[in-house]
Design a protein around this nucleic acid. Sequence first.
DNA 1: TTTATTTTATTGGTATTACCACTGTTTTTT
DNA 2: AAAAAACAGTGGTAATACCAATAAAATAAA
Lengths: 246, 246
Amino acid sequence: MKNRRLFWRIVQGIETSIKSGEYTVGSRLPAERELAEKFNVSRPTIREAIIALEVRGQVEVKTGSGVYVIESASLESNVVNAFELTQARALIEGEVAALAALSINDDELEALSETLDMMEKNQDSDSIEEADKLFHKIISTATRNEAMILSVKNLWSLRASTREIIEDYKNVCSSDNKLTLKEHTAIYLALKEKDAAKARLAMHQHFNRLINTLFDAIESKALAEVQRKNNEKRDLYSLESLVKSK
Amino acid sequence: MKNRRLFWRIVQGIETSIKSGEYTVGSRLPAERELAEKFNVSRPTIREAIIALEVRGQVEVKTGSGVYVIESASLESNVVNAFELTQARALIEGEVAALAALSINDDELEALSETLDMMEKNQDSDSIEEADKLFHKIISTATRNEAMILSVKNLWSLRASTREIIEDYKNVCSSDNKLTLKEHTAIYLALKEKDAAKARLAMHQHFNRLINTLFDAIESKALAEVQRKNNEKRDLYSLESLVKSK
DNA sequence: TTTATTTTATTGGTATTACCACTGTTTTTT
DNA sequence: AAAAAACAGTGGTAATACCAATAAAATAAA
């Protein structure tokens, strides 16, 4: 997890300065020579950091003028909370399951079955998360649709990107891993029957339970004010209004 | 469109070398000093290019050892064809429409209506594409779910990333823009009624027609051998087997 | 001979310096 | 007052040197 190379430290430093508002959107960063002095590194190192920021789409470099902070720079990732992510996963992976039911093969079914065993035998949270990840990955692969696979992958990296979400998920999964196993099994059976509608439904139920557990987990540790907001949102993120209208 | 800064040329050069198979996946790139000589630039410039490639996730740098090509580096973009993309958009944006139906407001409905006008009045393909893009973007925004919005955005950038897909889409959209307008209107009306199921269905029908048009367009210009393959795939990408099972 | 250790060459990591090209401002000229 | 020229500041690139980590080769030990 350590940033070995020096320029990553600079990237991090500049990023936090952008987030904190020290360098406002659209404004110019200090000159490379100044930044070099400020961070006590050489100018090439500063340049490397700026290029990394540029490739990430956070700054824009104008020759002869300066380095400017792009608008929609930093904020994007943090606005996604665990509920939004879970709802998105429910809807997208629901369709993924339905699609996979039509084209999954015996090898993949076998691989799915193994992840169930893995989840049943190992009780440590790392192994469970590993099995969980593999389970969903196998199903997305079974769709034979690279665009769907990429979408699922993007959602997963979104989950991994935010510390807050990681925390929330960890609490939920490790506590109720028996439920998770049960739901995974239901999905597996639906896929085995090649029943698209049933697979979609099972996937929805899996995530719907996850959403409710998330709410309970957060409520149990949250302040009263937060509770109010969540109760208002509970309807918003619930799948039930969507499911019933089918 | 020109790559002003020198290191972008190097990035491009190395990328094409990776794609062409000159540098195979997992293998080591030539040393920085060699690359500098090969491209006739200085070593710092090579380093900048490598950092850009690293941030993009195409290579991995191991201190003291070398620069290695990441596995999933080159292939991703090209394996997604127009059919896969359209199927994925159908399924995901179908759910997006259903979700949006529950939370869309009057301002957004008004904005949607304007895109319909725009598409009706302007007949040039650029304006139509602009209106199309805006239409789908407004709906995704109406979900109030950043993860869904991001997913739609990712699919759009996937569309823009592959020249082949752009070509295919351009043929379809400009030829049948009256159909597109009609289908967009149906989606709009369903959203106005706040009918999630109807919105999803309308979105599915929109993309299902697109898939079929894509097949026809490609068949009309393709060779006999390609035709055979496509006919086999037609079932695979069709939504009908999914829709009927609901 | 096999294994462990040391040496050595190679590679990336960083710093320093210098000079160029581009940009925006200031000053000078018209 | 407007246009042109000079200037200072910025990023762009190059060259060089030395450091640190790695991996391969040579050596020593078993």
